[in-house]
Amino acid sequence: MSKRRPYVRSKSGWWKKDPYYVEYMVHESTALFVAAYAIVLTIGTVCLAAGEAAWNGYLEAMKSPLSIIFHLILLAAIVYHAFTWFKLFPLTTPPVVLGGKKLEPELIVRGGWVVAVGVAVVSFVIVWGLA
């Protein structure tokens, strides 16, 4: 008879056991804030469709200190999402080959950040122009 009795260790709490996993859980959890913002925008469409009074109510609610604090948290979380989104590019996307040589991963990451900042600036200028 076999004396084998392989022991399977529990996975519970695995994400607390290494700083690498902790950071992973933190950047994954930015999704909660992206979801929250999607809901804020959706409520906006509901109020806008309901007419001027409802929309003004929405604007008033957005002015409350609680809403401002909430949006500051959203901003921090979504900036962190953007930061980590591009940081993972060397892992998640195929290597970029230029002239037979692989592009340095750091260059890809920094390129992503630069593009993100550029898009934000251009978007702001467009909105500023519209307003």
């Binding site: 992206v34 913002y37 901003l75 979504i78 900036v79 999402h81 953007a82 989104w85 591009f86 992503g112 593009v115 993100a116 898009v119 934000a120 978007s123 702001f124």
Partner: peptide, 8 residues
């Protein structure tokens, strides 16, 4: 979200 989220 990475490109437009923060500015929005």
């Amino acid at each position: 979200a990475a490109l437009f989220g923060p500015i929005m």
